[in-house]
Design a protein around this nucleic acid. Structure first.
Length: 220
DNA sequence: TTGCCGATTACCT
DNA sequence: GGTAATCGGCAAC
């Protein structure tokens, strides 16, 4: 595993963290980092990233940029690493992605789950009736909890609207689990690639993830 | 606990 | 006109 670029003094991850060529490396190293969104009133809402998925266009059939597809929606993925790619799916959910690699290389990492850290009261108001472990344990859920919408599509991840910080938790390689990505059955052989990463045993990984790979042993 | 299915709309064919 | 990088409710077990 290559060295991780040093953060700038305030802990914000630097451009060089994102512009590296290997999206799988970035997806792994995003685990344990702090995703921060600045609310309208200037306060912080944040969470530690505990689950990610890598998308490696244009060869990756599961990527929106498969085959070099370049449309109004996917244009954001062709921007420089360290840009937010936010899109809308299933008629009601947003998905937050981190663009990686250099300009015109459409690689991205989907953030699938967070462990809430700051602004938890605000998250509860945005997802009423949900237990705390159910606030951000899925890509659509975390966008709702953090107030992420398409207004953040194309935002620079060096701030000031949304950014990532070093975080306080060192995630060792032995603590990272790997498995196939979720919800891309249409992608044929690409659907089986082990490009999803999560922190082993973390209670905030997405439900679909835990269901697929950690089935409980059946009792008689 | 598992599995099915409807919601709801931007986007692409 | 079909589908999607999802979620939550409900039925069956």
């Amino acid at each position: 595993m290559p060295d991780r670029p040093k953060p700038v003094s305030d802990g914000t991850l630097p451009r060089e963290f994102y512009t590296r060529a290997n999206v799988l490396t970035v997806a792994r190293q995003l685990l344990g980092r702090l995703l921060v969104v600045r609310s309208r009133d200037g306060t912080r809402v944040s969470g530690i990233i505990v689950e990610t998925e890598a998308y490696r266009g244009p060869e990756d059939r599961a990527s929106h940029a498969y085959g070099g597809r370049r449309t109004n929606r996917t244009e954001t993925m062709y921007r420089t690493g360290g840009t937010a790619y936010v899109y809308f799916v299933y008629g009601m959910y947003h998905q937050f992605n981190v663009v990686t690699n250099v300009r015109d290389a459409p690689h991205a990492v989907l953030v699938r789950a967070l462990e809430p850290v700051e602004g938890i009261a605000r998250m509860r108001r945005r997802r009423p009736g949900r237990a705390d472990h159910d606030l951000t344990n899925g890509p659509g859920k975390l966008c709702a909890a953090l107030g992420i919408s398409r207004s953040l599509d194309g935002a620079d991840l060096l701030g000031p609207r949304v950014w990532l910080e070093e975080g306080r938790r060192e995630v060792r390689a032995s603590q990272i689990a790997v498995g196939p990505r979720v919800g891309i059955d249409y992608a044929q052989e690409w659907a089986d690639k082990p490009w999803r990463f999560w922190i082993k045993g973390n209670p905030y990984v997405s439900r679909s993830a835990t269901r697929r790979l950690t089935p409980r042993p059946r009792s008689s």
